[in-house]
């Protein structure tokens, strides 16, 4: 690989200037102010960087939207392994039987209850405690994003009740607490950049 002739008369190189632009490291910073060659070099590198940004923007625009067919095809071909999580036992009437539900099903249930609250979107849901042992106390931790302007404090109490009702209906877990954390406030529709 041949080295380009990139050493200036002042002895510095475009390589050093390139590193300086990325890291701010340079052996003799005042030199950069006084040396016309180095300043020209930095200007060139900045123009390159600007052209790179333009190229990037044009490439992303040319790639199309995430709702286009190419992405639909990719998503249709994806093999996403489901995440059953732990096995949560349910009482059986016959000792020969083994009845259970998956942690993944219970988490999805909690998520959908939260999603049903107007202006709210569930985030991560965790079941803290040994859900595989009947009667063990379990704490539900639910992250929530809310739309700005909604009166969430009122609805947090009713959400807690809805989650408790759903868990009582669909599990035999001993729910010790339901902790709801509002992690995000969404103020407007957003898109990348």
């Amino acid at each position: 690989m041949s080295m380009p002739h990139d050493t200036f008369e002042c002895g510095h190189t475009l390589e050093e200037l390139s590193l300086y632009l990325d890291t701010g490291e340079f052996a003799d910073p005042p030199h950069l102010q006084s040396c016309p060659e180095c300043r020209n070099g930095l200007d060139s590198l900045r123009r390159l960087s600007a052209a790179g940004n333009e190229l990037f923007a044009s490439d992303v625009a040319a790639a199309g939207s995430g709702t286009d067919d190419w992405m639909k095809d990719i998503l249709a071909n994806l093999t996403l392994e489901l995440r059953p999580g732990r096995t949560i036992p349910l009482r059986s009437e016959d000792p020969a039987d083994s009845l259970s539900e998956t942690e993944g099903a219970v988490i999805a249930l909690v998520r959908s209850v939260a999603d049903n609250l107007p202006g709210a979107v569930a985030g991560r849901v965790r079941l803290d405690g040994d859900v595989t042992v009947p009667g063990e106390p379990v704490t539900v931790r639910l992250d929530l994003a809310v739309l700005f302007g909604r009166h969430l404090l009122d609805s947090a109490a009713s959400l807690r009740q809805d989650v408790a009702d759903a868990l009582a209906r669909h599990t035999e877990l001993n729910i010790a607490a339901i902790d709801i954390t509002i992690t995000d406030v969404i103020d407007a529709p957003r898109e990348e950049q």
């Binding site: 202006g119 979107v121 569930a122 985030g123 992250d143 969404i186």
Partner: peptide, 19 residues
């Protein structure tokens, strides 16, 4: 709000996807 996942911050989506 499930229909509005496209306006939800990354971290929330990541948490849900991890679940």
């Amino acid at each position: 709000m499930r229909d509005h996942l496209d306006v939800v911050p990354d971290a929330i989506l990541v948490g849900r996807a991890a679940d």
